[in-house]
Amino acid sequence: MIRLDCPVCGHRDETEFAYLGDATVRRPDPSITDPGTWADFVFLRDNPRGAHCEYWQHVMGCREWLIVNRNTATHQIDSCQLARSVFAGEATMAASS
């Protein structure tokens, strides 16, 4: 059983979480009307063996969305962060550069 180190709740069993998949895809800007861009975002995913950055939600806990780096072959978890702090950090970096 995978155990995730939720930044809010600590180490918890995978049964408390829901999985959503690839966290490297970014939702296009809502103003974009090109269907291809949206189709890529919704449907196209890699299925790598090895390192994978993915979304999990702590549905049975704090309900935070998490960004987890997991090895799909070994289930080794390398990191588990709050999605909102990752994105807020990205936004700050973008603003300052």
Partner: peptide
């Protein structure tokens, strides 16, 4: 609920 929370955490922050 999860759908909204996901949008807020990942693109509508």
């Amino acid at each position: 609920m999860s759908h909204i929370e996901h949008l807020l955490a990942t693109s509508l922050y």
